[in-house]
Computed example of a mutant assay.
Amino acid sequence: MPIAVDTAPVEQPDSSFKKRFTERTTPPPELPPFFYADRFDKAHFNDWRDELATKGYTVVKAIPTEKALEYRERAFQWMESFPLGFDRNDVKTWKNEHLPVHIKGGMFHGYGFYDISQLWDIRCEDGVIDAFAKVWGTDELITSFDGGSIMLPNRVDVMDSGKWEHMDQSHYRRGFYCCQGLVNLNNNGPDDGGLMVLEGSSTLVEEYFDTHGRNSYKSWGPFDWFGFTEEQQQWFFDRGCKWVKVCAEPGDLILWDSRTMHYNVRPKGDRDRVCTYICMAPAHLLTEEDRQLRVECFEQSKGTTHVPFAAIYARDFEPVKRSDGSPCPHDTGKPKNPPVLNDRMAKLVGIKPY
């Protein structure tokens, strides 16, 4: 994701994410056959992976509830650590002026957030790694350097900037390519904000583009991203796909095929939404060039897009900007609570081989 820029005290309707799409007609790179492309062509696992294959998403218990709630507590401690006046117990401070800069009501990408210790602790959880190991059939994994969300309910200074229905996979690719995930850290019901998925869309995207062509694509930057219009979505609705709000408990890992159309929504009820985004994939898929880029991103506390092994998209550090347009003095690009490198982290980064 791009660096968050707060352009006004209140988000304006014309700041819609879709308005920043670029439509391109440049030829795609040559895409070799992917080793795991047919892994989820059909349901044959006799466990939750069959739901991933047929519906395009599933929910797996990965972290004990009490521990997940401890991670939520650490997330609020992180926000309160900035000298901006935020107090979780005072709703009058639930405003942009008292919060670290974010986008879409609570998605954080500055302040070295990708590299804070709690995100690495979650990435290193046995249950998280075990789930991705079942997805791929190997426990020799690397991880994306994704961010997370801390969305407060009843915000009065944030306007809905619209949906951004998309898939995080180039429409030039064929077959399964990436499994995305988020670890939910609070009770998350129908009104609590969260992930929306177009159930069944992962099994139809190739047919859609085979029918309608692949000459152009809409993206905010990365190759592995495609934004869908309402007209394009209707084709999927006509074939039985429906939008589903995925509900989850603290410690649940929501997994979805990157071909699944999705977006997120802010809380409509009175409960906050806290989650961490994680994608893992087999380490053997890394080229040496991409491995070195990942090590550089880790050393510089830079985030990456979801796919951890190829076409890695990372931005150079630039301080996030506050509502008056000035760089936030609290964003140094380094986390306030950096992790301590251990053996598991070194392997998940690509510093150390398996």
Rank of each mutant, 00 (worst) to 15 (best):
V60D: 00
P83T: 12
H171A: 01
Y111C: 02
L141I: 07
L69G: 09
E66M: 05
V91H: 12
T58S: 03
T138G: 00
F86H: 13
T58C: 11
V101Q: 03
Y111F: 12
D87G: 07
M107P: 02
S117T: 14
R123C: 00
N96T: 06
D146K: 05
V156R: 14
F176P: 11
G175H: 01
D146S: 14
E140P: 09
A53R: 00
A62H: 08
V158M: 11
I122T: 00
D87F: 09
R174P: 01
H98T: 15
M151N: 07
G127K: 09
Y57N: 04
S149N: 14
T143N: 03
E70K: 10
D160Y: 06
G106M: 13
F145A: 04
K134W: 01
E73P: 01
S149M: 06
F76S: 00
Q77R: 15
V135K: 00
T143I: 07
W94P: 14
V101W: 01
D139S: 11
S170P: 01
K104Y: 05
D139N: 13
E80C: 05
S170G: 15
L84K: 12
W94G: 11
R74L: 07
Q118V: 14
H98C: 15
L141F: 00
A131G: 05
G106R: 09
L152Q: 08
Y114P: 03
H166K: 15
